[in-house]
Amino acid sequence: MAKLRRSLIALAMVLALASVASLSAAEQSKPSQDKVAVVNGSAITRADFDRELMYAQERLSGTGMQLNTAQLTQLKKNVLEQLIERELLYQESQKKGIKVDQGAINEQWRTLKNRFPSEEDFSNTLKKMNLSEKAVKSQFKRNMAVQEFIGKEFAEKITVSDKEIKAYYDSNPAVFKQPEQVRASHILISVDPKGGPSRKAEALKKITNIRQKLQKGEDFSALARKFSQCPSSAQGGDLGYFTRGQMVKPFEEAAFALKSGEVSNIVETRFGYHLIKVTDKKPESIISYKDVKDRLGQYLKEKKVQKEASLYVQKVKEKAKIERFLVEEK
């Protein structure tokens, strides 16, 4: 489960980076169907648009939202306008003479690669998305230029007072509620849904034997390292802290019903059979103002920066020459 989650996060990062901005100005002789817009002479290609749209749809599907035809049409329009605005911000950064250090670009590339389980996984993901190292690094460069521009033009000039921070904290108590948390370890014997009854019976037998070892006093962490088929086995089965809604329902219900130090009976989920040990519990609480002040101040500053940048780009947009070629399919 953890490996899958890391891969999805890494993939989402690639998708986001792939959609930062168009790679280069397309030749004006190319037909309009190869591009969805031209901003002051620089093209936003259909490929850029499709990647950004795919990322937006991935985010929405992750929330369980299914788009109807009208919502999809609106999403496409929103995506196009976001790409146009990013292109305008990049153009503004270049007018200000902002340069990006190649070493910083290379470091971002290494960081991205390290988010994948292996070099092969990383290469395969780029191939599936029709992206090259040169293309991704080009987009890193554009993104970093825009970030530096926003920093110099807005972030460095905007402040948030202690009074503003405290007022927000006092006016939004629900935001600072920390839900009940459980820290748990587990031992998983996975079950292939296509394996049939015999494979399921075999997995149940294995987890039953492990449970018997626990009942005889053997160490949970050691057994998890030896037998668990989850990547968390490397940490003795430790999954860290989690709240309700983060795990599949049967797992969640069993974990939150246990007291600290207790081990569950065998729990079945779509992943297979689990034995769960709760190692700590934290009741619902309110995060103190002292603990959240610095992060809250940064959040409020970012909101101000976003607002100022949005107002700025709208003014630039009004003066820009923008041609849109996106046609809704019938």
Rank of each mutant, 00 (worst) to 15 (best):
K3S: 04
L4V: 11
L4M: 07
R6L: 15
L8K: 13
L15I: 03
A16K: 07
A16T: 12
A21I: 11
S24M: 07
A25Y: 06
A26F: 13
S29N: 09
V36E: 01
V38E: 01
V38T: 11
N40D: 09
A43R: 04
R46Q: 10
D48L: 00
F49Q: 06
D50C: 03
L53A: 00
M54A: 13
A56E: 08
E58K: 08
L60W: 02
L60K: 05
G62H: 07
G64D: 05
T69Q: 15
L72S: 05
T73Y: 12
L75K: 01
K76H: 03
L80E: 00
I84D: 01
E85L: 06
Y90I: 09
V100L: 03
Q102F: 08
R115Y: 06
R115V: 07
P117F: 03
S118T: 15
E119D: 11
N124R: 10
K127L: 13
M129P: 02
N130F: 12
A135F: 01
K137D: 00
K141T: 13
R142V: 01
R142C: 00
N143G: 10
A145Y: 11
Q147L: 11
I150T: 00
I150S: 02
I150E: 06
E153C: 11
E153R: 10
F154R: 03
A155P: 10
E156F: 12
K157T: 06
A167G: 05
Y168E: 02
S171C: 06
N172G: 05
A174L: 15
Q178V: 13
P179D: 04
P179V: 07
Q181H: 15
H186C: 01
I187R: 04
P193T: 09
K194L: 03
G195I: 14
G195A: 14
R199K: 08
A201R: 10
I207N: 01
N209A: 15
R211F: 09
Q212M: 10
K213G: 05
E218R: 12
E218Y: 05
A222Y: 08
A222K: 05
A224M: 06
R225M: 04
Q229A: 07
C230M: 00
C230Q: 03
S232W: 09
S232F: 05
S233V: 13
A234S: 13
Q235N: 15
Q235Y: 08
L239M: 13
Y241G: 01
Y241S: 11
F242D: 02
R244Q: 10
R244V: 10
Q246F: 12
V248K: 04
K249E: 15
F251D: 08
E252W: 08
A255M: 02
S260C: 05
E262H: 07
E262F: 00
N265E: 15
T269N: 01
F271Q: 06
L275A: 06
I276R: 00
K282N: 02
S285A: 11
Y289F: 04
K290I: 06
V292Q: 12
D294E: 12
Y299C: 05
K301R: 09
V305G: 03
Q306W: 14
Q306R: 11
K307Y: 13
K307M: 05
E308P: 15
E308H: 14
E308N: 08
Y312E: 07
Y312T: 07
Q314S: 12
K315F: 14
K315P: 14
A320I: 08
K321E: 12
K321Y: 09
E323G: 03
R324N: 01
V327F: 09
